[in-house]
Structures are given as C-alpha cells and as structure tokens.
Design a protein around this nucleic acid. Structure first.
Length: 866
RNA sequence: GCUCAAGUGGUGGAAUGGUAGACACGCCAGAUUUAGGAUCUGGUGCUGCGAGGCGUGAGGGUUCGAAUCCCUCCUUGAGCACCA
C-alpha cells in the first residue's frame, strides 16, 4: 500500500508505484528465459526541447496495455525505450548558443525519461539506448562499413536535393513537393559529392517482403508506390537520318502502332545528335529555359506542356513508320531510358502534348464492350470512340495490322516476343525507387568512418596485398576526383570504432555544402599505415597522408537498427548478441506514427534484409511482423495541435490534474486507436469519475477496505464473466475503447448490486493494464501479492454466460414490433405460440396475410406479410 | 487529376447482415448541501397529446431484414502527382 490516504489521491499513489516498479525491476526482461517471449516496440522518440507531446502517451499506453497483458499471460515481455537523439534541433541549439549539442541532448533526454516514467509504463529501463552514445553509434558505423565492403555504399556527384535554409542535402524521401520534410523550406538541385546507399539492389526484396507481414494496407501501398516497380519493354527506334538508336521504355507495348511521335528528355545524351542544323537554335533555347526552371516549377506547372521539334525522325521497328522526335521536359531523364514513344490516343500526357502541338492522334485500342469480345470490332469504325480519347484502360486492338482483335494482354505478350526475337527490343523492369542519399553536412550525426587516400597509394597497397583493407573494400574502388587528384575510400578498422565526433565550436555548415567537421583540422588530416591500419596525427615511417570523411550520417541511420540493440544493449562484441537475437528474434508488435511509412520503415527494412544476407543476424528476414499506427490527437477545436493555434495540451498538466491513470484511460477511451480524434478537456472528467467510483467501491471514507458481499448474485456473476471475455478479446484486437466501456458497465452494475471480494480481486486484474497505479494500490490494500500485472490473467467460464431465458425480437417485414422472453431451449413452434399471444404484436398482424416466417434461434422471429 | 479510407444524436463514439445510438461527455429534472463544488437517482435521436411515424451524407439496388453488401453522386481525410 502506498499511503493510508482516504481519498483517491493519485498524486501520492502514482509516484509510489512507479518507484516500486523501478526499484524491484518488476518489468525486467530476462534474456533466454524459459518462458515464451513477447517483444513490444514503440517508435522511440526524438527528445526535443519541447518535452513530450500529448500524442506520445497514446502509442505508448497502447503498447503498455499489450505488454502488461502479455506479462499476465505468462510471457517474458521485452518493452524497451530509447532516444533517437541525433537531429537538427539539437544542432540548431548548438549553433545558436555555441554549446556542444550533447549537453542539450542530455538535458532533453533526462526530461523525456522523467515524463515517460510519470505515466507508469512497464518498461525495462536497463535496456535504454541512445543513438548519440558512442557505444551505440559504434555499431551504426560498423553497419555502414559492411555496406561499404559489399559495394552498397558509394559516392556520386550527381545532382542532389540541396536545402539552402538547412545548408544540407536531403534524400528523395525527405523532399515533399519541392520542400524539405523537416521545416518545410524550399529545396534546389545542386551537384555535390555524396555518399549513396544502393537500396535499389533490394527493391524486389523490399517489395516481396511486404506480402508476409501484418501491416496497415495504406502503409504497404505507400511502400509499393514508392518502390514503383513496373514491367515493360525497351524498344529501339532508329534515328532518321543517322541510323543510331534511341531506346525507349514502355509498359504498354500493345499501343506501339499508335506511337505518333517520340520524346527525349532535355538532358538526354542523344539530343545533340538528333537536332538538325535548322532547329539548333530553338532546341538550345528550350534546353536553356528548362535549366532555368527549378524542379518545383518543372513538376508543379504540370498544366501546360512545353516542347520543341528536333527536325529528326525515328523509325518504328514494328511498322516502319517514321515519327517526329521532340524534346520535352515532361519526360524525365532519370527514369527508364529518358525517352518515350508517345501514344497520344492512350496516354493523357501524350494526348495533351499532341493537342498542343498539333501532332496526329491514332487510336489503336478500343474500349471493351460487354456484348462483343473483339471479334465484331470494326477498325474502320473507330470514329465512335474518338470522342472518349485518350483511353488509357485495357481493350481490344484496332488499327494494328495483324494484331487487330487481340486483347491488350495478348498483344503485350506477342509484341514482346516479336521484339526479342527480332532483336529490336527486350523486356525490362524499372523502379521509381532511387538510391538512398546517405550523407549530410551536419555536425550532430554519426561520423562516417572512412579515410580518403590517393589513388596510386590505394592501388599499390592492394597489388602488394600487404594491407589491412584488402578484404574491407568493395571490388570497385569508391573514389572521386578533386583538382585532378583522385581519392579512394578506405575503412577504419573495427577496433578503431567508434569514430567519435571531434570537439569544435563551429557547428554551422557552410553555404557551399561543406560539413562543419572540416574545421576540426587536427582530426581531419591524419596519417595511416596501409599495412596495419594504424592512424597517427604526425607523419611517420610507412604512413601515408589521409583525409577523414567530413560528412555525417542522416538521422535515419540510428533508428534503422535500434530494435536489435534493445535485445542486448550492453553487448560489446557485435551489434547484437547472437543468443539474444535467436531468443528475441524481432518485435512482435510495433507501434508508431504513420508519417514514417516510406522513411524509417523502408530504410530499416533495407538494413535488416542486408544484415540478414551477410549473416549479422539470422532470426527473421523482416524486422517488423506486425505494425500499427496510432491516430493523431487533435486539439479541442478539431485542428492539429500547434502553438500558434493555442490548442496544445501538455501531458504534464493532465498528469498533475487528473493523474497518469486518467490520462492513459482517456487516450484509450477517445475512440479507435488508429483514428484521428479530437482531445476534449471535458471528456477526461468521465474516466476520472470512473476511477473515483472504483475507489469508492473498494475503500470507505476512513481509507479502510470496504466489506464485500459474501457471495455474488447471478447478475454480477454473469456480468463479471462477460467483462473478462470482452476485455480479453478487445485487448487482443487493440479495441481498447470498448474494453474500457465494458469495465464501466461492470462498475455501474457493481455499484448498484455489490460484489464479492473474489470478484473485486479479478476486476483489478482486468483494470491493471489500463490503469496500473490504482489497480496496484487497491490490489495491495486487499492484501494480494505484488504485482497485480504479474498474476495470471483471469479466464471466463462460458457456462456462466449462458442464460436460461433469451430475448426474442418479434419483427413484421423486418421491423421490430415486440419482444418476448422464452426459455433458451425453445423451438420455433414454442416461440410462435408465445408470440401469437402478444396482443401488441397481433394488432400489427390483424388483417394481413402471412407469406413467410423466418426464425433465427435465440434472436429473431420475422413474419413476412402482405 | 489519380488512388485509398471514412461519413451514425448537441459532442467523442458503439453496433460489420438481425432491437441503431452501448459507454462517455454535455444538457434537463430531482436528492444531498447554508451555498458552490463533489456525489447519487432519473431522463435525454427527431417528431407527435397519444397509438404511432421518421431516422446512420444523397439517390438507387440486392435481401424476409441493410449503418453494415453492390452501383451512382456529394463531402471530408490521407497518400501520390508528369515514373511513360
């Protein structure tokens, strides 16, 4: 017992039990316990200076209910918490104050931990992880080096998204409608040397893996769309005059006879070759204009198509037709072959373009009609369909020579076959997914554990085979050229990890894409012994000059594998203890916001699949078997909570005023867990009253346990078993709102009728996952053993649910007219006999002719009349 | 524009083919109280004196029976947005 308080004094009760759970390590997850494991994972928070948001405890409470429920069912539960602590706000604070970001980060973590502990979650605090701790990021760096060694990390200086405001590059996934995902600042294209991870190599595995995991459909769909796999045909068109070939990519080879022009992207390498002398000027001007446009303009001004004719023609290899070659910026150089065959009759974009530039439109697909299956199609009579162009669906081929009458599906097959046989085309698979841009020009991130040395020294070390990095570098060297010197990347050795961030007082990146780490000159320029890997700050015999990589990793790096670290957070021999990994495998339940659908959740799956492939882990291919997104909690006014709207609810205030149990209960009672729902300041009163009612049912005005009934009456007995059933089933289905409603029904009944001591005990077990503090307190006052969350979960007795009397609804033409109570074993004849005696029911039947009777045993008797 | 999801009292929501509105908020009345607060009891979809009638975004359909299944439209939310 916490205190001998008389009233429901949550301010005394809650901290007492929180301390007790911590001190007793009540929720410590024992690795390799003989019990079956259950791993509940929350998306770990970024510890911002704003403190915890009211949305945080929503997901955390849901996972906590599950964790406590599983403990009570005999599972060995892993429910950890940690900090995704690298990130921009801490760095911006450092820039503003000149203070090292680790100081502020530590303060914020402290505050988050205190806040999270004030909710009484059954977390194993021994397993806390912090992505900014060198003991942690040592292994983030180690994973990077594995990716490097396997040729999945390389440098590139293609155009990348650059955000001038953040002074950093961003990944494709971090750019939304031409603005940064964080901060909503405009971004532009810039050529910079950057580290890139070859996530595209895992495109198919990332796609296939989605099939056997239990995730929200919308999230799966988003990942599928992001990967954007398509199957099609690459077809070579011959340039007239000239004779060289332009490969185009299409997913609709069946429309090949409808191609009336060909379009090159403005950046396409054959632009110069295809442009005739008299069109030179116009084409160059068009390309100049395109370059001036930002990517935002180029994609956002989708309304009006633009383009220019090159003067050349291309020969359609299927029918020998010559079609004009145009240049237009609606074709992207980075997708497919950067060139398309345009079929205006069956593609909206091509249609729009053809209309604007007066290019002919030729229909080759007729929409399928219900009556004919293609045989009666009259190719000459296609005028009828012209009004409906462009028609982009599947149909029947017309105007396509011997393919006329084929379906889209048949025609695709035939044309692909023909193209491959004749050698002017080949099947191809394309993806929208691009490689993951992995470096950032920031201070507050994991340093990339790479040294750069000159090419000749690199080659010499490898040919002489007397070097530590012989097996640690990819087959093809990762290199770049600057001022005519070529630099090659070599890794640090495992025992040189973690590569810690150097001390500096300059945290601001430069305007031209230089990381603040370049200012740490001592750290930056070193000497390395190529045979031993030894690093020295001073030149030495046998050492060669090297420069450290100055970019850091993006914030997503640390969160890609934290769920593995929780399994053995103090293990020093590897990222995860193989025994722990074999036992815990992967999270059984993962809950977090839907905003990470294509960022964290795609990156983490990529790393997991990779780690599995290289044998670093071995239990599962996919990291997150079951995923759930909690809904957003809106402000009182139905709008998103924001400082500017003044509708922000601070969880600390709620805990202060109503207690953590009320907050937990209320957030779960608001509505379905995945729904977006508005906070109501008045609404929380309801659950608070519920808790006070429970208190009053157990404890008298003197703070003593009340006298319970010697025995339950039948109504309460049935209600208890109904409640056990409903609460148990609803927890399994994550329908916490209705589970709480059922407990309220129980308490309302208990208040009227009274309950036995045994029933009072069982109810506390049901309540404990939702409101653990009050449940633990009353449990202790009843003299039961600590802890209520570790006692075997109650089961219901089905025989108690059966009743000897059932209610039958009497309907006429499906409308409820009366109800009767009958013996539960009553037959239809017996029910009818009683029904016919009901005067109210009979008044509805009088003068009507009975057509049919429908009887659903135990539920309904419906009389159909005329 | 395309794709997906969802529309139920004054409010949050319950019911996924069988009594629409569980549970809760709010509101009304009463009890207790010097008063307020707290607590307890009863009521509360709309309409009608009543029997009853109407009612789940709108319209249509399937069914003995539809909030639930199907079609069309409207609204809201989410995602994608020249990916050929």
């Amino acid at each position: 017992m916490a205190m001998d308080c008389k009233n429901y004094d949550f301010q005394k009760i809650e901290p007492f039990w929180q301390k007790k759970w911590l001190a007793n390590q009540t929720f410590h997850a024992e690795c390799l316990s003989p019990a079956e494991k259950y791993y509940v994972l929350d998306m770990f928070p970024y510890p911002s200076s704003m403190g915890l948001h009211i949305g945080h405890p929503e997901g955390y409470t849901a996972s906590d209910i599950l964790a406590r429920y599983k403990w009570a069912n005999g599972f060995n539960v892993l429910h950890p918490m940690g900090w995704d602590a690298f990130g921009l706000p801490a760095e911006q604070h450092a820039i503003a104050t000149g203070q090292h970001p680790s100081i502020n980060t530590a303060i914020n973590i402290e505050r988050f931990r205190t806040q999270i502990q004030s909710f009484g979650f059954a977390i194993d605090w021994n397993r806390e992880v912090d992505t900014t701790n060198p003991h942690y990021y040592r292994w983030t760096q180690w994973i990077f080096l594995q990716l490097f060694k396997h040729g999945l990390a390389y440098v590139d200086d293609k155009p990348v998204w650059w955000c001038p405001e953040l002074k950093s590059v961003l990944a494709n996934e971090e750019v939304i409608n031409g603005r940064s995902e964080r901060g909503n600042f405009p971004v532009e294209r810039k050529n910079l040397r950057q580290w890139v991870l070859k996530i595209t190599k895992y495109a198919d595995k990332l796609l296939d893996g989605l099939e056997d995991i239990d995730w929200p459909n919308s999230t799966k769909r988003q990942q599928i769309a992001w990967i954007g796999r398509s199957e099609g045909l690459e077809i070579d068109f011959e340039i007239i005059p000239g004779g060289s070939k332009i490969p185009v990519y299409t997913t609709r080879p069946d429309t090949i006879f409808g191609a009336t022009f060909l379009v090159l992207a403005p950046e396409h390498e054959l632009v110069e070759q295809t442009t005739t002398t008299e069109n030179q000027e116009k084409v160059q001007e068009y390309i100049r204009n395109t370059k001036k446009k930002s990517d935002l303009e180029r994609t956002d001004l989708a309304k009006e198509k633009s383009g220019v004719f090159t003067g050349s023609f291309a020969k359609n290899p299927f029918n020998g037709e010559q079609i004009p070659i145009w240049i237009a910026d609606y074709v992207l150089v980075s997708y497919g072959t950067g060139a398309i065959m345009a079929v205006p009759a069956h593609d909206e974009r091509d249609f729009e373009f053809a209309q604007k530039f007066n290019i002919s439109i030729k229909q080759v697909i007729a929409p399928p009609t219900s009556e004919n299956s293609g045989e009666n199609e009259n190719p000459e009579n296609s005028l009828f369909y012209k009004n409906n162009l462009p028609f982009c669906g599947d149909g029947i081929l017309v105007n396509s020579g011997k393919l006329n009458g084929s379906t889209t599906e048949e025609a695709k097959k035939k044309i692909m076959q023909q193209a491959e046989q004749c050698g002017f085309g080949r099947r191809a698979v394309k993806y929208k997914l691009r490689d993951w841009l992995f470096s950032r020009q920031r201070y507050w991130g994991e340093p990339i554990p790479i040294l750069w040395i000159e090419r000749s020294l690199y080659d010499r070390a490898l040919t002489e085979k007397k070097t530590y990095f012989l097996d640690l570098v990819p087959h093809i060297a990762v290199s770049y050229k600057k001022n005519n010197v070529e630099w090659c990347a070599i890794p640090l050795m495992d025992n040189q990890l973690p590569l810690k961030l150097p001390e500096t007082n300059i945290y601001l990146p430069s305007d031209d894409g230089e990381s603040p780490l370049v200012h740490a000159k001592q750290w930056l320029n070193v000497f390395v012994n190529p045979s031993t890997g030894e690093i020295s700050a001073e030149p030495q015999m046998g050492f060669i000059p090297a420069i450290r990589e100055t970019n850091t990793m993006p914030q997503w790096a640390g969160s890609c594998w934290y769920y593995l670290r929780y399994m053995s957070p103090h293990y020093e021999e590897g990222l995860v203890d193989p025994q722990a990994e074999a036992y815990w495998k992967s999270p059984d339940f993962y809950i977090g916001g839907a905003e990470h659908a294509v960022l964290h959740l795609l990156y983490a799956r990529f790393w997991h699949l990779f780690l599995y492939d290289i044998g670093a882990i071995s239990a599962t291919h996919e990291p997150f078997k079951k995923l759930f997104h909690q809904g957003i909690i809106l402000g009182n006014d139905g709008n998103k909570m924001s400082k500017s709207r003044g509708n922000v609810v601070n969880p600390d205030d709620i805990v202060q005023q109503y207690g953590a149990d009320s907050l937990r209960l209320y957030e779960m009672f608001l509505g379905p867990l995945d729904a977006m729902k508005p906070w109501s300041t008045q609404g929380i009163e309801g659950v608070y009253r519920f808790l006070k009612k429970i208190w009053a049912l157990y404890i008298d005005g003197e703070g003593k346990v009340k006298k319970f009934l010697a025995e339950d009456n039948a109504t309460i007995d049935r209600l208890l078993h109904e409640t056990i059933k409903k609460v148990t089933e609803d927890i399994e289905k994550l329908q916490f709102n209705t589970a709480i409603a059922q407990m309220m029904i129980f308490i309302n009944g208990a208040q009227k009728i009274g309950i036995s001591r045994q029933t009072a005990v069982v109810f506390l077990q049901l309540l404990a996952p939702f409101a653990p503090h009050i449940a633990e307190e009353l449990w202790a006052r009843l003299g039961e053993n600590f802890s209520v969350s570790k006692i075997k979960w109650p089961t219901y007795d089905p025989s108690k649910l059966a009743t000897d009397q059932v209610k039958i609804i009497l309907q006429i033409n499906g409308k409820m007219r009366d109800e009767i109570a009958v013996n539960s074993s009553a037959t239809q004849e017996m029910v009818e006999e009683i029904a016919w005696k009901q005067s109210r029911f009979m008044t509805f039947l009088s003068g009507k002719k009975i057509v049919k009777k429908i009887y659903i045993p135990g539920k309904i008797l419906n009389i159909v009349v005329k």
